Amino acid sequence: MTEVVTLGETMAAFRAEGLVRSAHHAAVSVAGSEGNVAVGLARLGHRVRWVGCVGDDGLGRLVRRTYAAESIDVSCVRVDPHAPTGILVSERRMGGVSTVDYHRRGSAGTLVTESDVVDALACRPQIFHASGITPALGERCAAAVTAGMREARRRGATVTFDVNYRARLWSEEAARQALGPLLGTVDVVIGDSAELAVLVPGADDESRVRALFDLGVSQVVIKQGRLGATAFLPHRSVHAEAFSVPEVDPIGAGDAFVAGYLSGRLERLSLEDQLVRANMLGAFAVSTPGDWEGLPTRDELRLLSGAPGDVVR
């Protein structure tokens, strides 16, 4: 039985060893927020389905093959014969800073439909997860997210939403107007303080959280980076400290956090332990290169308890 359905765009990712304009070599992989979450969950042994649209091309086949190899159900991924799979190109610059260019206009990933996601939810998952990136890709994608949330609610699933605000995709005002109407069908909102401020007005986190509760949200999880994370319920809050690890690549850390949190929720861990697992996966993500490549299996979670230089045999 499928436990989680995630909906979103996955692109082919070209990661250059140096500057693209200098014709450096690039490694090819795949990347997408909701797909990253799916990988994190699948590696922990959860049954997860990713829903999206890819082109009928080599890069689309790469996306489907990669996720299938991670034991993710791709049976509901639609292949569009008329649109290409989107591409992102990243470069590592000075000080470890990465820059990313996106080539997604007219791509298959922006053409996901309401029926794509509604059909995928026929499996009656426990959780339906989406992020704010998908609605930012256009009205068609926004309608698919809306339909998915409503259908998931109708089928009794918990709806989780990672704000995942991207300033390059839309303004804060545009995001607020588009995402606000969705909040009445969301159970759990996840984001950092700045992202909550995009969703709702308020002078501080507590006032923003109260505003989200007034809109019908039942839980708010605030990612706080090196300070850990805090989860808010209507009558209490819980905090968990972050794990201290050397930071190699921060990309994908937020998605890893979400995967850990959802895993803990599925296993009915205490709210504090859900945050602990979320922070654990975030630590694995930042300590290895790539969006999702370094995410742990369940057996590997124990590696965080080791000391630097330890050898696990």
Rank of each mutant, 00 (worst) to 15 (best):
P296H: 01
P81I: 13
A253Y: 05
L304S: 11
V79A: 13
L182T: 15
A203S: 14
L262Q: 08
V112I: 15
T288Q: 09
F213D: 09
R140M: 08
T230P: 05
R21I: 05
D255I: 00
G58K: 06
G40K: 00
A31I: 01
T134D: 02
A23Y: 10
F243C: 09
A283V: 09
L44R: 01
A16M: 12
S218W: 02
V186L: 08
T113Q: 07
H46W: 07
L281H: 13
A136K: 04
S237H: 13
W292P: 00
G148M: 05
M149K: 00
C123W: 03
E293C: 05
S22M: 10
A31H: 02
A136H: 08
I133N: 01
L199E: 05
G40T: 02
A240N: 05
A143C: 08
V117T: 10
G216A: 09
G216W: 06
L121T: 15
M149R: 00
G264I: 06
D116A: 13
V145K: 00
G40Y: 01
R140T: 12
L19I: 02
Q219Y: 00
V200Y: 07
V117W: 03
I72P: 03
I127C: 06
A83G: 04
A23S: 14
V189L: 06
V20L: 12
R226I: 03
S287K: 02
V48L: 00
D192C: 13
R210L: 12
S207A: 14
P246A: 14
T146S: 15
I251M: 10
E195L: 12
V39L: 11
T10C: 12
R302N: 11
M280A: 15
G252A: 13
M1G: 03
V20F: 11
A242N: 10
R166L: 02
D101T: 15
A120H: 04
S75Y: 07
V217G: 09
I127E: 10
N279H: 08
E293A: 12
P308R: 14
F213Q: 12
E91R: 03
V217K: 09
V4L: 04
V4A: 04
P181V: 15
R49Y: 03
R150I: 02
L41T: 09
T288K: 08
L44V: 08
R265F: 08
V37I: 14
S193Q: 09
R65K: 07
V28E: 10
L262K: 00
F128W: 06
G52W: 04
V248R: 03
S263T: 11
R105D: 15
E70G: 01
W292K: 06
L62T: 15
E267Y: 03
F232I: 12
R65S: 14
A283C: 15
D192E: 11
R43L: 13
N279Q: 05
F128P: 06
R47I: 12
R302G: 15
G55W: 01
G264V: 12
W292F: 10
R226L: 06
C53Q: 15
S287C: 09
S90Q: 15
L301N: 03
L19S: 14
E3A: 13
R61A: 12
L44C: 03
R277F: 04
V48Q: 02
A108I: 13
V220A: 07
R313Q: 07
H25Q: 07
